[in-house]
């Protein structure tokens, strides 16, 4: 008796679910890829959807490679990638630069160091410099924190600094936020992250004497800068085009700027 009641209840739930399966009206867009640009995409999507209630945008992280892959396979309509150079398989996609992003070198706020030369940065991340003393700091071991192999930020960082083979002992984290948290929690750590995601928990240090600020990046003095691409299948049309156009509009670019990234141009 009891069991059949449960059977009926389960059956009812099942049929309810099937009934709820109809897709709701409007266009659905999925944006996936770079974790560095994800927060900006979410904010832009929020604003865009306020203007266009007929469009439903879902933003996923996953990394630049997932962005390229999803845009190619159709799992996402727009892929986000923040690489200095796009890989060959992205050539069939339409790429638009929607923003530029500085890469900040960060240390724990307790660290007294304020400046590193590019040469020192290379030495530290390669594991040749292992103590803060050797770079002008206090006598503490250096703990390198880096992104995962294949990360857009890491690829850009290593390309710009030039010829880095990452130290074996480096701690690996898989997003800007986690790099920031790790460095914020460890007095001896050094890492790098998207300029847009800097906050008071960590200290950005000067690279070759240039501070990582918007002015210095726009002026072209700060060297660690990479573009952010949005990739979609050609031809660009419909809601995809509208969303990308919105991001490139002065309002979209202003949102990007206000939240710490740099406009595309």
């Amino acid at each position: 008796m009891k069991f059949s009641i449960i059977c009926i209840a389960v059956g009812a739930c099942l049929s309810l679910m099937v009934c709820g399966c109809g897709r709701h009206a409007g266009t659905s867009l999925t944006v996936a890829g770079s974790t560095a640009f994800q927060p900006f995409a979410e904010k832009l999507a929020e604003q865009f959807m306020a203007k266009r209630p007929d469009v439903n945008i879902t933003v996923q992280g996953g990394g630049s490679a997932l962005g390229i892959q999803s845009a190619r396979s159709g799992a996402a309509q727009i892929g986000m990638a923040d690489l200095v150079e796009l890989p060959p398989e992205a050539s069939e996609l339409l790429g638009v630069t929607v923003a530029r992003d500085g890469i900040a070198i960060i240390v724990n706020p307790e660290n007294t160091l304020t400046n590193l030369s590019l040469e020192q940065i290379r030495g530290i991340f390669q594991g040749a410099i292992q103590n803060w003393k050797e770079a002008g700091g206090s006598d503490q071991p250096i703990r390198v924190v880096s992104r995962e192999a294949g990360s857009g930020t890491r690829a850009s960082f290593e390309t710009i600094i030039g010829g880095i083979t990452l130290a074996r002992k480096a701690i690996i984290q898989d997003s800007n936020g986690t790099i920031r948290e790790t460095v914020a929690n460890d007095r001896d750590a050094v890492g790098y992250l998207s300029h847009g995601l800097l906050n008071a928990k960590v200290k950005a240090i000067r690279a070759d004497g240039v501070e990582c600020t918007e002015n210095e990046i726009v002026a072209g003095r700060y060297k660690l800068v990479r573009p952010v691409f949005l990739l979609s299948q050609p031809p660009s049309a419909g809601a995809v085009k509208d969303f990308i156009d919105y991001i490139l509009s002065s309002e979209g670019q202003e949102t990007i700027r206000r939240n710490g990234l740099l406009p595309a141009k």
């Binding site: 399966c21 897709r23 879902t58 997003s175 936020g177």
Partner: peptide, 21 residues
């Protein structure tokens, strides 16, 4: 709105909030 929409569970939300600080 339907089972064809993406969703975020509390565990995932917590993971993202805590890990990304």
């Amino acid at each position: 709105h339907s089972v064809f929409d993406s969703t975020r569970t509390m565990a995932v939300h917590f993971y993202i909030l805590a890990r990304e600080g």
